[in-house]
Design a protein around this nucleic acid. Structure first.
Lengths: 226, 226
DNA sequence: ACAAAGCAAGAGCAGTGCTCTCGTTGTGGC
DNA sequence: GCCACAACGAGAGCACTGCTCTTGCTTTGT
């Protein structure tokens, strides 16, 4: 019919519907959700789903990309408009944590152990770095505004590696900033995973939000956001 | 025959053999290894395996406990005899990382996303805390030796929670030490997971060992091991 | 010596991912 | 408007999975 085509629109809707149902199954079955079960929920034959996703892995990949973008967007929104670097960083961190607590299985999908035999395709590396880039941007802004306290410089082979990134990203910025930024990102993810995957059980059981903020303040300190 | 019984010994050997083969499969298939395939490798019927493990989950639980103990032992050995607290902490951290790099699937099994529908039984919580307890002991020793620099004290609900632990573990020790210890443990695990699960790709590709040490030095600084 | 318990094997059930085939239906070119 | 063609949904089928049950055999404890 129209230039866009009825079929194309229906296909897009169907694709989205499959992902929605799959996300629901993700919440109960985790990463080994059943494609057949998803098809049953949709009232269609399992073979029909293969018209939209060539394999279960491809479905998972789509869910992974969506999840990366979802958490990235949440973090972006939370940080928006906040000028104080430390506040900005903490809000961003809490936004990521809140998103993860809201849907632990989506978190596990992107930051947990990779699905066995699953190799992340190129499409995922873009969305995957969104949160990291947000932190990098935050640090960059704080640096050019002169709001970053001095810390001990880094040295070694990895320091040279990071110096290259620092120089082309923000000329003049100390390489240790890049390192501290990545480290903060790693600590952020580690803290959420530890909480979600039960490694904090019997250690911190009451005020996990408070403990999370304590950890993130530590990471912020190492960056120089005092 | 003997008091121990031939059958009991054979059973123990068989149990160990199943676990060994299962560990081998773990390296290729990850957490969704096939019990039938393991049985095939052993030249026995799949149903026979159920004489030794009531379910696949129980097999996984056994592997998890072994893995916790293995990494705990490695960390213990690495830290043994080292007196300087910072050096001790770094060696411990590197030992854990080396173990994880050596067998990423075992690491994923214990520190990755939990197997869907799998509930960790009581037997695992003991071995699971070994590394954390090592760090706690290290900090405790350094504290009583007066080798810990002062840092900003903590406050809030989680601080009171940690104060209880601190008081009964090392009376007089500041609660922030407990917090910093757990935080270091979390960062340790997060750093290894990030490296293993590919979140460092395109960020730190060359000298990951150096970057790991940089991160652990940061964690050590926050504890007060300057 | 004998009953009881432990053990291995095979068949079987319900479920899985994925492929192939077969009718049906919407689509773009003439 | 027609028609070849591609997209589509459904069903059967293959090889695989975890797990159960039954059937014989072997090692125990008494």
């Amino acid at each position: 019919m129209s230039a866009s085509g009825v079929r194309a629109r229906v296909r897009a809707e169907m694709t989205e519907e499959i992902k929605t149902v799959a996300r629901r199954h993700l919440a109960t079955d985790g990463a080994n959700l059943s494609l057949r079960a998803v098809a049953r929920d949709l009232g269609m034959a399992s073979s029909a789903v293969y018209r939209y996703f060539a394999s279960r892995d491809e479905l998972l990949t789509a869910l992974i990309i969506d999840a990366y973008n979802a958490v990235g967007e949440k973090a972006e929104q939370a940080a928006e408009g906040i000028t104080d670097p430390l506040d900005r960083f903490l809000r961003l961190a809490h936004a990521v944590r809140d998103w993860a607590l809201d849907d632990p299985h989506q978190w596990a999908l992107i930051y947990g152990s990779p699905v066995p035999g699953y190799q992340a395709p190129q499409d995922t590396i873009g969305p995957a770095t969104r949160v990291l880039l947000l932190i990098a941007g935050l640090i960059r802004d704080a640096y050019v505004a002169g709001k970053i306290a001095e810390r001990e410089p880094i040295s070694g082979r990895f320091a040279e590696e990071l110096a290259v990134v620092a120089e082309q990203y923000t000329p003049g910025a100390p390489p240790r900033l890049v390192g501290a930024g990545i480290s903060a990102f790693v600590h952020l993810g580690g803290a959420i995973s530890a909480e979600l995957f039960g490694q904090l059980n019997h250690s911190v059981d009451e005020d996990r939000r408070g403990f999370f903020e304590f950890q993130m303040r530590g990471a912020a300190y190492l960056i120089g956001l005092s």
